[in-house]
């Protein structure tokens, strides 16, 4: 690691063996070369990428959820938590990875700590806002029907926050997939690894394109899966067209249509 040679390095081009004419000529994308190296290079890189992402989003979600419940319960905690997670979110990924190296070395742990810290802001904000956006009159109605504080959280606030939580999950997942490519600066894993391999081969185009395309594809598929999951978990929220509309409008729409029927259902 740390062997990265910038562009100008005197590397003798070695574009994946002489057998493939396209590769030897460094064509834009050589399908044959790609399929030949799926098993050895790209397949494992995709799997590693998924694992890196899943661990980061999973741990990030657990931490953010706990923090969000805290901030929901104790208002004053929201500002410091949001401040710290914004701080982490602001640090450029490459810098954060390197700054962590003295603490945790060139390990997967370093990568995960960095990736988790990038998910926190996105997840925390969305969960808190989701919980907060539940209209007060809905909560009031629930209280009036005799639900306890805990029941209100479990049966009213959380279900109604599901769309916002999923929105946060989607953004966090896509972001993490994007940032996990940078992990290759620290460990030889994920879809960033073929990119560095391509550089060490003297800027081998096929490997650049394949790795980047796979990362984009992965982000897109993950997003679709989360949408599908949301439809299963909260079918009533499927038609929500939230984010184009400002929050006040979202609040108004949710205030009128959703919560009342949701209360009746419980």
């Amino acid at each position: 690691m740390g062997l990265l040679i910038a562009a100008s390095g005197p590397v003798i081009p070695n574009f994946g063996g002489a057998s493939d004419k396209c590769a030897v000529n460094n064509g834009f994308f050589c399908w044959n070369w790609f399929t030949q190296h799926w098993g050895s290079t790209f397949g494992p890189a995709v799997v590693q990428h998924i694992i890196l992402t899943a661990i980061a989003v999973g741990i990030g979600f657990a931490i953010a959820f706990a923090l969000a419940l805290l901030a929901y319960r104790f208002d004053w905690m929201e500002t410091p938590i949001a401040g710290i997670s914004s701080f982490l979110y602001t640090i450029p990924s490459l810098a954060l990875f390197q700054i962590l190296v003295p603490f945790t070395g060139l390990t997967r742990l370093t990568v995960e700590i960095a990736l988790v810290s990038y998910t926190l802001l996105l997840l925390f904000r969305n969960i808190v806002t989701g919980l907060r956006e539940v209209p007060e009159e809905v909560r009031d109605a629930a209280r009036g029907m005799g639900l306890t504080q805990r029941q209100i959280l479990l049966r009213i606030d959380l279900p109604l926050a599901v769309p916002a939580i999923f929105a946060g999950l989607r953004v966090a997942t896509v972001t993490t997939i994007s940032l996990a490519t940078v992990a290759a600066f620290v460990v030889d894993e994920g879809l960033g690894a073929p990119i560095f391999d391509a550089i060490s081969r003297g800027n081998f185009k096929t490997e650049f394109v394949a790795a980047a395309a796979l990362a984009i594809l992965l982000a897109w598929v993950a997003d679709l899966l989360l949408v599908a999951l949301q439809r299963m978990v909260a079918p009533w929220a499927a038609k929500r067209r939230s984010s184009v509309v400002p929050r006040s409008v979202v609040r108004a729409i949710r205030g009128r249509r959703r919560p009342i029927s949701a209360v009746r259902e419980t």
């Binding site: 490519t181 185009k205 980047a212 982000a219």
Partner: peptide, 27 residues
């Protein structure tokens, strides 16, 4: 369209973009 472009954009990994443009535009 605006939101779709924005979402498409955010699914693009920075490193991957640079890699793709290494292939298209070179160093």
């Amino acid at each position: 369209m605006a939101i779709r472009i924005a979402n498409l954009g955010r699914a693009l990994p920075e490193l991957g973009l640079i890699a793709i443009f290494l292939a298209i535009l070179g160093i």
